[in-house]
Design a binder for these strands. Sequence first.
DNA 1: CTTAATGCAAACGATTTGCACCGCC
DNA 2: GGCGGTGCAAATCGTTTGCATTAAG
Lengths: 147, 147
Amino acid sequence: MYEKALETLRNNNVRITPQRQIILKYLINHDNHPSVDTIYEALKQEFSNLSIATIYNTLQLFEKLDIIIALPAEDGGIRYDFFGSPHFHAICDNCGEIEDIDFPNYKQLKQELAKEAMDQAGFQTNKIHIEVFGLCKNCREELAKKR
Amino acid sequence: MYEKALETLRNNNVRITPQRQIILKYLINHDNHPSVDTIYEALKQEFSNLSIATIYNTLQLFEKLDIIIALPAEDGGIRYDFFGSPHFHAICDNCGEIEDIDFPNYKQLKQELAKEAMDQAGFQTNKIHIEVFGLCKNCREELAKKR
DNA sequence: CTTAATGCAAACGATTTGCACCGCC
DNA sequence: GGCGGTGCAAATCGTTTGCATTAAG
């Protein structure tokens, strides 16, 4: 997983700097869908003179290389997610939490969507991106209690 | 379509102001996926003292009421889309254009995704949101020429 | 060595906010 | 006529930029 991502960097002639390594490790080891600031706060302790501009740069780079994906968040900001295995996102309308849901039949779904896009608009699909919105388990239970 | 949206406003005890009406009409009559600024530039001519803050307010309101949906754009900004009939979006990695693609089997797909979200996380799905990324027809042809 | 990458601080710009006024219901 | 909505301008804050410095390959 980590190695595969480094491989991607090498294949694109991107230098493997310590900053990129710790940001990558952070993304792999945390499934909390961090914001730029969350990452910055977490890493500046062990890497005191880490610049927030570097984090912006690095995340944009990783996204371009399809190592991570960007998601829209409740507050209008952006969250990032290491994209090791295909999954989609369930985003709670109440608390804003983002949960990963595994795709049972990712390839098939992708093909179906790609076919429609091609048939209707001559659009060539490279990747797909799915979110569902609603209520997470906790919020459902909380709201049920209240009435 | 227009009436149905007004109905939604009434049902939520939201006042139907001239500003909300022209913004709504604009969204229905344009499938260009406008940004806040695009809408502002277009409408301030016929409504000279229209405030950009009102547009922000109105769009946020419409989105909350599921009259429109917000999409992430190429440049990091946000575009809006009147959501009359179920469709997903094909976003070109090269030129940033957003195209609407009709869902052939929207309900079935929604059910499948909702089932996974429920089974895996106890998440109750209200709406789904799908984008595919790749190359639009024009860009494919352009890029083919160049080599 | 060469050149990409980083850190820093300043600049930017989209979005939000506070408040007085207005007008929909 | 009450209160939600609007317009305006200022404030905010996430993100980008320019440039000198550093270090990866």
